[in-house]
Nucleic acid binder design. Structure first.
Lengths: 137, 137
DNA sequence: CAAAAACATAGTAAATCACTATGTTTTAGC
DNA sequence: GCTAAAACATAGTGATTTACTATGTTTTTG
């Protein structure tokens, strides 16, 4: 069970944005340099976050990114969902895939519980917790 | 975030053994047939469980496997550890690997918490819960 | 001693991962 | 308006991992 670099890098990018005072833009290339992440790769990752609508992008020279919401309104379940593709721990649980063993599988319910447990954990963590020393882990 | 077929198949094999009355042996090939798993692959998986010492193997004709402990003594954390290799959600947390960003990483503590959370969840689930309708998920 | 089962290692096709390369489009500043 | 800088976008690619298969050896029962 392992999360990809996509999720790790993406999260670090978002934490960087969350650390910024409201309205202050950060450029992707700069974050990539500071975080030691390949700029081209980070661009792909950030693009995957687009449909989530938590990013404000300014194009052109002097552009950059800000968060479209405040950090406490952004939870990790959503972020992980967009970066990992799906969080489901086993392929049997993916939607649009109905497992043949569904009726008889002794382990299916377990995997569902694990999935729920994971989602709940991630749902209750917001970007705010990464920057707030009070709620820091 | 996804668990491999190794873990899924291995778990199903162990649940099969747990379902059996105490002392009743099951043959790997039979389980593989009934669970629709490649026998050769299942052998590899079962071999990975060996160091855990939860299996009793009888070699030779008429041989097979039983559990070496009662199902409520076998928890999923141990099983997953042996089947997945390591449960750590990100490579930075693996032992014998000291991440360069360790001191400055804003997300490391989060990954540690996720790791602990996951382990605790798995630790509190035993094979018994898969066969017991009372404690069934 | 033959068959059946566990034990063991090596190889392999397919998929996934972690990028790189090569652009296009938009905007700020001169 | 032109140029540089930044976001936006797609395709390709080498390395690694996954999910097996193939080919045995060893042990035990009948």
């Amino acid at each position: 069970m392992r999360f990809s670099t996509r999720t790790r890098y993406g999260l670090r990018f978002l934490v960087r944005l969350a650390e910024q005072p409201k309205g202050v833009r950060l450029q992707l290339a700069q974050v990539a340099r500071e975080e030691n992440i390949s700029p081209g790769y980070l661009e792909q990752i950030v693009r995957a976050l687009k449909p989530l609508n938590i990013l404000c992008a300014a194009r052109g020279a002097g552009g950059g990114y800000t968060l479209a919401k405040s950090p406490e309104e952004i939870n990790l379940e959503d972020i992980f969902l967009h970066l990992e593709g799906e969080i489901a721990p086993v392929s049997c649980l993916e939607k649009n895939k109905n497992c043949l063993r569904m009726g008889c599988c002794t382990t299916r319910t377990f995997w569902q519980k694990l999935d729920e447990h994971m989602r709940l954990f991630l749902h209750n963590i917001t970007l705010q917790q990464f920057i707030d020393s009070e709620h820091h882990f």
